[in-house]
Amino acid sequence: MSARKRTLLKVIILGDSGVGKTSLMNQYVNKKFTAQYKATIGADFLTKEVQVEDRLVTMQIWDTAGQERFQSLGVAFYRGADCCVLVYDVNVMKSFDNLENWRAEFLIQASPQDPENFPFVVLGNKVDVDGGNSRVVSEKKAKQWCTAHGNIPYFETSAKEDYNVDAAFQCIAKNALKNETEEEIYLPDTIDVTQNRPTKSSACEC
């Protein structure tokens, strides 16, 4: 590992507006939550140093505008992504229904080399709202969707209560790193890692 350059993992967060993309990112990176974020215009990102197994990596987490109308910008922002995080609000059915669109849109815009195996992670956010009483998307339904789309790891989160956020991003980093090492297979010290590549779902049943 000695000669390896520091790894930068690029992670894109997508999902309908208001599902909590900015909040999740800020909770994870800055350990902060405020109810008064502004709607994201354009895009922004935060970075965080993450330990993944024995490696220290820098995760660059991109937060984008949630309105699909701005997707034509995606080409610029999604390029070189190592992992895509799809977020929906468990209290808003439409935001769950749109996961399909977000996933497809991402694959078109980012055009990764191996779309079939590109790592996604799904987060069902805002599980804290109203004690779960306003929830309209069940965990079961979400998991079914994830399974049907190639065993995408799934997490239920609350950015507000900092519930499951670290675990989710740890999984995101892990998956991103897998993707990243595959691309850098020419590096001699990546051989072991790629050989041991497990299936996604088992990697993140954390």
Partner: peptide
């Protein structure tokens, strides 16, 4: 519904300070 929802999502996070 979508429009109203979208507007409502945004106005509550507009210049609240």
């Amino acid at each position: 519904r979508e429009r109203k929802h979208r507007v409502e999502k945004d106005v509550v996070r507009t210049d609240r300070t």
